[in-house]
Lab assay of single mutants.
Amino acid sequence: TTIEWNGTKITVDNPQKAKELAKKIAKKLGLTVKVHGNTITIE
Rank of each mutant, 00 (worst) to 15 (best):
T39D: 04
K19N: 08
D13M: 14
I25F: 04
L29M: 09
T32I: 13
L31W: 06
I10M: 05
V12S: 02
K34Y: 05
L21A: 02
V35M: 10
K9S: 14
W5I: 15
T8F: 12
G30P: 02
K23L: 12
L31D: 03
T41M: 11
T32M: 08
L29K: 08
L21R: 02
N38I: 04
L31V: 12
Q16S: 09
V35I: 15
A18S: 02
K23A: 13
G30V: 01
T39V: 14
K27I: 10
T32H: 10
K27W: 02
A18I: 05
E20H: 09
N6T: 08
E4T: 03
K19P: 01
K9E: 10
T1V: 15
K24D: 06
V35E: 05
I40A: 01
K34F: 05
A18T: 02
K28H: 15
G7P: 10
A26K: 09
K17T: 10
K9M: 14
I3E: 09
V33G: 00
I42E: 00
E4W: 07
H36D: 14
V33A: 05
L21F: 07
K34W: 03
I40M: 02
G7I: 05
A22R: 01
K34L: 07
I3R: 04
E43G: 12
L31A: 14
G30T: 01
K24L: 10
N14E: 03
I25T: 01
K19E: 11
K27A: 11
K34P: 00
A22F: 03
E20M: 11
T11K: 11
I3W: 01
K23Q: 13
K28D: 12
V35C: 08
I3Y: 01
P15Y: 12
Q16M: 10
W5F: 15
K23D: 14
I40N: 00
K9N: 08
T8M: 15
N6A: 08
K17Q: 12
K24F: 09
L31R: 06
P15A: 10
K23I: 12
Q16C: 10
E20C: 05
A18E: 00
V33R: 00
T2H: 08
L29I: 06
E20I: 12
K24V: 09
V33N: 00
L29S: 10
W5Q: 08
T41S: 09
L21D: 01
A26H: 07
E4K: 05
N6P: 15
G37S: 03
G37H: 05
K17N: 07
E20K: 12
A22W: 02
I42K: 00
I40G: 00
L29Y: 14
